[in-house]
Design a protein around this nucleic acid. Sequence first.
RNA 1: GCAGUUGUGGUAUAGUCUGGUUAUUACUUGGGCCUUCCAAGCCUACAACCCGGGUUCGAAUCCCGGCAACUGCACCA
Length: 564
Amino acid sequence: MNHDKMSNISAKRGFLWPSFEIYSGVSGFTDYGPLGASLKNNIMQKWRKQYVSGEGFYEIEGPTVMPKEVLKASGHVDNFTDPMCKCEECGEVFRADHIIEEVIGEDVESLENEELDQIVIDNNITCPECGGKLSNIWNYNLMFKTEIGAKGDKVGYMRPETAQGIFILFKRLERFFRGKLPFGAVQLGKAYRNEISPRQGVIRLREFTQAEAEIFLNPKDKTHPKFSQIEDVVLRLNSQEVQEKNLEPLEITAREALDKGIVANEMLIYQLYLARKFLTEIGIPEDVLRFRQHLAGEMAHYALDCWDVEVLTDKYGWVEIIGIADRGDYDLTSHSKYSNDELNVFMEYDEPKKVQKTVVKPNLSKFGPIFKGDSPKVKQAIEDADVEEIKAAIEKDGKYVVELDKTYEITEDLLLFEDVEEEITGEKVVPHVIEPSFGIDRITYSVLLHSFTETEEKDYFKFDKSVAPVQLGIFPLVNKEGPREIAQDLTEQLRMAGFTVEYDATGTIGKRYARADEIGIPLAITVDFDTLEDNQVTVRDRDTEEQERIAIPELPDYLEKYYK
RNA sequence: GCAGUUGUGGUAUAGUCUGGUUAUUACUUGGGCCUUCCAAGCCUACAACCCGGGUUCGAAUCCCGGCAACUGCACCA
């Protein structure tokens, strides 16, 4: 692990470059060079393979610009902001709520800025640094704001996460999956957050790539059909208790974690397992990974349970690269409320339930003459009220009182009670959502960092062959007629077969091997003068440097098998 | 956002304090020679003073502003 050396080579060889460099750059943005983009794409392809074909989810793609309404409902417009204030003497900028809470010792999170300003005045709160006068409080919203349309009266934001794009498609998705829980949709794409001062390179970007899955499931059934297959897998868990008591991380099986209630449910544990499987398969070793449970105060208020996957780095310490949360029904309920659409699933019972109950009906022939024009709303009030309550009131006082803008007294003779048997075939259920959310840029960084290998002879990216940006180096041993033509033909042929190939004929063979190793090409193929005789080439392994002679006609199969 | 430090070819650097010739050196890269398996050697070429303004006869060098990187503080739903 060597961030500095790795970054240097990564910039030199075309993985990560600072954005807008010729105009001095802007912090919080990064460019992926040719090899970086290829690496990132390979990682995303591998992700799709695991979650789309592997888990049976489907990928959707929504807009990155969203109208205000969506983000109002999700809470981002109101809660994705920080109240800030500035000292007019020393110029220091503070979180206004933090300063105030410190002085008055009360939670002020729900208050408006004007109220906060008043508290500052009333309590004579000054700059904690120099005691100077504080400015009025303003909101800093971390979303990029824009306008939709020519009139400019429709406010839009760049999406701060890809998840909302899936939630707002819920009705369509529910139809698509024919109403059967659980089902899952994924989205990969850019998200935007106007960070106040991003500093840690690709770790905190203002524009970044997320890969998120939203798994909708029955709140009463959070099991996973494949749980029994993974129940003996050992997970390293930094639970709330471990963190609070400063203990060693737990090393326990999935089954134990479930039985002891450390992770909330099977689906969540299964997602932890899947996340780790993904990371190890793209070349991040298990011993630099851990699962950390969010502390009670750290968790979003709606989350039922939340675990981060963290990776160890030499420069930034433990860094969150994946968040896996049980968000309950928060998102669907909230969008349902704001959009007035029903976002739920009708769950049919195995057998219809028969329910005996008493219903109350207003006797309308008497209602009309008595209540006249108010009759419809009194009727509605009766229908909305609890039958037992009405019954009890009439037994006790001989009348039931409806309080609307006026008071209405309803005596027994105005009502008809009826015993009925109802058949209920099922119920509407708002699904819960389990969300694994991957930070692709941070994961790409982790792959770079942990693939980077220093040995006595060479420093190189030891990429897993499944994500290596270049798969093959093809070299004529010497740049002479004969081997050169064969090597060029072979390059063409293997490119046609779908491999990414670098052809290189310059300098000495050693230099070309070194250059290929540095960018992590797993296999190099060398054509020499013997090839002219026996039609065989040398295949050299990046890590062992061992060589093998393979006949050219067998090469496509050999490589197909190797990269499978 | 605040403070400090820094900014010279692709990379790493000399020169800046004390303003003055064609901006130093090494590696890398392109072309050529040589070369039958791990960065060898020879020839040759390309290539830089972060951006803008000021002071001055003259600025990589001094001053101001901006941008970026690093460190500390603050921030990270």
